[in-house]
Amino acid sequence: MIDANEKSSVIRMFHVHHNYGIQKALIDITLDIPKNDFVFITGPSGAGKTTLLKLLYLAEAVTEGQVLIDGMNLSRVPRKRIPLLRRKFGIIFQDYKLIANRTVFDNVSLVLEAAGKKRRLILKKVRSVLRLVGMEDRQTALPLSLSGGEQQRVAVARALVGDPKIILADEPTGSLDDDSAGIIMDLLKDVHIRGTTVIIATHDKDLIRKTGGRVLFLKEGRLDTSSFVEKDYDNSIF
């Protein structure tokens, strides 16, 4: 399973363990995510899905094992370079994590400002990405005046605005009704088609069935390879 062509994989994990104190959250995870993959990480609540994503964007450090992103070993990334690593990702959360007292526009532009981009480029990029998610009319709105689905669309815009190589989404539709969830998943599939690697953690089997894509199954911190084929849905179902 690891003998996939190394050049084409963006994320690799080798015998990764993660403990919170004595609590083992991930046990001996070895996996490989090729470039331009569209992959679900699923499993029951508490299986370690969120933890696995956190290891990728270095919100948590591995207890044991190796994580490679673009061939870069995360345990060798110095603290000061963590922001640079994070700019490779666009991250989407169940609770949107928008800044409440900043407008839609400012929430999205933050990413480019933090990356030190020029004002004119920021203006152009933010507008186009807000148009993409259908929120161009709400630029000056504050997040709390929006519906959950709209807030998540803004969050998707924020995740996309920096043209990241990889989208990480942790239960992106967990707080949304079916229609809003559908819009979000369509957006994620669009960016996948345009060449971005998309990784979605969710416990929602229906969502996976409806969307289609590769599935990694986590159970009590272990990768469950036995259920791999069974869970490997095809886009044609959709």
Binding site: Y57, R87, I91, L110, V111, A114
Partner: peptide, 16 residues
């Protein structure tokens, strides 16, 4: 603090 956490998540440097 929420805002700071979010800024970190989107790759803002400490200086920023």
């Amino acid at each position: 603090r929420d805002e700071i956490e979010i800024m970190r998540l989107v790759g803002a440097a400490e200086r920023f």
